[in-house]
Amino acid sequence: MRMTFSQAIEEAIAYAMAQDERVIVFGEDVHLLRMNLLARFGPQRVMNTPISESAFLGAAVGAAMAGLRPIVEVMLVDFIGVCLDALLNQAAKVEAFSGGRWRVPMVVRASCGGGYGDAGQHEQCLWGLLAGIPGLAVVVPSNPADACGLMLASILNNSPVVFLEHKLLSDYWLLYLGSGGRKNVSFDVPSDGAEGEVPLPLSAVPIGSAKVRRAGKDIAIITLGVSVHRALEAAEKLWGRGIEAEVIDLRSVSPLDSEAILSAAAKTRRVLVVDEDYLGFGLSGEVAAIISSSGIQSSFARIGPLQAIPYARHLEDEVLPGADDIFRAAFDLIQR
């Protein structure tokens, strides 16, 4: 069935809420943002919170430990800075410290990503930072089918999952934070990511499994989220130059699908990681470590932001990886 990215997520949540009374939703402004869930499941299961992230994210941990399965929303992943303790020292530690006897089945839902001019307190990705915490799964869908399947898997998962939805794929976030209803501003929205076919009946997409979006033998572009679409655009251009690029959509940052990464590296011997999260100390370095410790000989390059995301649209474009940047980086790697 054809759905937008945001509809696909809502379908998954509604399905899970109808199946299991323990699934509840709370967070800032959810009476507006999740109006349909509110109308269907009522205010006992869809609850507005004050702007008190430390309290309500921490409360989600307790609620999950004591039998509920909360989906807790922090609006933008940037705001996780305010309440990181609940994830870093609470949610991620319970299972480890209890010797596996106590688990925390919760989903943290947040929007992420830039490309609409809101600057680096509202446009970060932070998946590297979060995935660096053992005990947290982090998923980043790039299209409606995965958004639905990964949300279902996240709700069914018995440990904490951070579910990140990119704002360029999410029509309502872009409407609220980007256009505000105006017709005279535009954003580079990948149409295959914002809307697409979702297989029925709904089924979970396993967390931690990457997907080959385009097969190729000369170079593997490993990426996720909106950058998958930018990479596919670049791969098409590379093909025009006689270069066959493989595009891997990681879908999960943690757990990371090392098997998929290694088989792409072994096949192409050239790996380019495209990351919208910070380049240093993050996902791209992790991919490089996996490849180099495997003994597979592969050349390697990476692109992504090295600095805070600036406000002006043209400066933002320079910092975030676009199709042209990917094309150039891939071309350079092949020439090397």
Partner: peptide, 15 residues
Amino acid sequence: SVASEGATWKEKVAG
């Protein structure tokens, strides 16, 4: 959404 299976009518009206 209101017409779909979910909460009691009382809860739906409250929503």
